[in-house]
């Protein structure tokens, strides 16, 4: 295992610290959004601070839940459904 591989292996043990850093960065971004906004909002609502944070979170959650929990169960088949494999 080379240097980079060993480094990555060590980071697995620091999982909690990385997660805290992520939360910190996200909070800082929203805080910054209070002071920095778009010159010309594209949709109107995006003039409000936190709009894009909420947009990313809500669209992401809805997309995963709808596609994995509601759509996929209906359209999924066995891997060799068409007899190709």
């Amino acid at each position: 295992m080379n240097g980079l591989g060993a480094f990555l292996e060590r980071q697995r043990e620091l999982r909690g610290a990385w997660l805290k850093a992520l939360y910190g960065v996200l909070a800082a971004l929203v805080l910054l959004n209070l002071f920095v906004g778009p010159h010309e909002p594209h949709f109107g609502l995006d003039a409000y601070p936190g709009f894009w944070a909420l947009f990313g979170l809500v669209v992401g959650v809805l997309m995963v839940v709808i596609m994995k929990r509601m759509v996929q169960p209906v359209i999924v088949r066995r891997e060799d459904h068409y007899g190709d494999v």
């Binding site: 992520l22 996200l26 947009f55 990313g56 979170l57 992401g60 995963v64």
Partner: peptide, 9 residues
Amino acid sequence: LLLGFSGLA
């Protein structure tokens, strides 16, 4: 913001 919070999702 967009990417960070979709990552959170």
